[in-house]
Simulated assay, not measured.
Amino acid sequence: MHWLYLAVAVVFEITVAIAAGNAKGFTRPWWTAATLVSGGIATYFLSLALLTFDVGVGYAIWTSIASVGIVVLGVLLFGQRLGWRKLLGIAIVIGGVVGLRISGAA
């Protein structure tokens, strides 16, 4: 169940990044509200996941997977470029998450 909580937290963390980017410095009320609500939901589900995960490991997995998701959505939805350096960074992040997982982290 902790992996499900972590997955929900990741989805809402990605939502935070997209909403914050569209909030334009919190000058757009609906995007600002979406940022704050999504952040609260993401933090709540992360806290549930951290009942099982070690804090450092759970947080690292959460931020890493969300970061990769944000980069991928930036490419797919916003036409951002995905060069070899970004791909290398994504591969390193995924390798780190896999390393944490096989180290016995939850």
Score class of each variant (00 low, 15 high):
residue 1 M to Y: 08
residue 1 M to N: 12
residue 1 M to F: 13
residue 2 H to I: 02
residue 2 H to V: 01
residue 2 H to Q: 14
residue 3 W to D: 00
residue 4 L to Q: 09
residue 8 V to E: 02
residue 8 V to W: 09
residue 8 V to H: 01
residue 9 A to V: 10
residue 9 A to P: 00
residue 10 V to T: 11
residue 10 V to F: 01
residue 11 V to E: 03
residue 12 F to E: 01
residue 13 E to D: 13
residue 13 E to M: 00
residue 14 I to D: 04
residue 14 I to L: 06
residue 16 V to A: 03
residue 18 I to T: 02
residue 18 I to M: 15
residue 19 A to C: 11
residue 20 A to M: 14
residue 21 G to I: 01
residue 21 G to Y: 00
residue 22 N to K: 15
residue 22 N to D: 01
residue 22 N to T: 00
residue 23 A to M: 00
residue 23 A to H: 03
residue 24 K to C: 00
residue 25 G to M: 08
residue 25 G to Q: 05
residue 27 T to F: 03
residue 28 R to F: 09
residue 30 W to N: 06
residue 31 W to Y: 13
residue 33 A to R: 04
residue 33 A to D: 10
residue 34 A to D: 00
residue 34 A to H: 01
residue 35 T to R: 05
residue 35 T to L: 06
residue 35 T to N: 07
residue 36 L to V: 14
residue 38 S to L: 07
residue 38 S to T: 02
residue 39 G to I: 04
residue 39 G to S: 04
residue 39 G to N: 06
residue 39 G to D: 02
residue 42 A to H: 04
residue 42 A to F: 07
residue 43 T to S: 05
residue 44 Y to A: 14
residue 44 Y to D: 08
residue 45 F to P: 04
residue 45 F to Q: 04
residue 46 L to Q: 12
residue 47 S to P: 00
residue 48 L to Q: 15
residue 50 L to G: 05
residue 51 L to V: 06
residue 51 L to K: 13
residue 52 T to M: 08
residue 53 F to P: 08
residue 53 F to S: 12
residue 53 F to M: 13
residue 54 D to N: 11
residue 54 D to G: 08
residue 55 V to Y: 14
residue 55 V to K: 02
residue 56 G to M: 11
residue 57 V to K: 13
residue 58 G to M: 08
residue 59 Y to L: 05
residue 59 Y to D: 07
residue 59 Y to K: 06
residue 59 Y to S: 09
residue 61 I to S: 07
residue 61 I to P: 04
residue 61 I to K: 07
residue 63 T to W: 02
residue 63 T to A: 14
residue 63 T to Q: 12
residue 64 S to K: 09
residue 65 I to Q: 09
residue 65 I to Y: 03
residue 65 I to S: 14
residue 66 A to T: 09
residue 66 A to C: 05
residue 68 V to M: 12
residue 69 G to C: 06
residue 71 V to M: 14
residue 72 V to S: 07
residue 72 V to H: 04
residue 74 G to Y: 10
residue 74 G to T: 09
residue 74 G to V: 10
residue 77 L to N: 05
residue 79 G to F: 10
residue 79 G to K: 06
residue 80 Q to P: 00
residue 81 R to D: 11
residue 81 R to M: 11
residue 81 R to Y: 03
residue 81 R to F: 03
residue 83 G to V: 02
residue 84 W to M: 14
residue 85 R to M: 10
residue 85 R to W: 03
residue 87 L to K: 13
residue 88 L to A: 15
residue 90 I to T: 09
residue 92 I to S: 05
residue 92 I to M: 13
residue 93 V to K: 09
residue 94 I to K: 03
residue 94 I to F: 12
residue 95 G to A: 06
residue 95 G to S: 08
residue 95 G to I: 08
residue 95 G to N: 03
residue 96 G to Q: 12
residue 96 G to K: 13
residue 98 V to F: 09
residue 99 G to N: 11
residue 101 R to V: 14
residue 102 I to E: 15
residue 102 I to G: 03
residue 103 S to K: 02
residue 104 G to M: 13
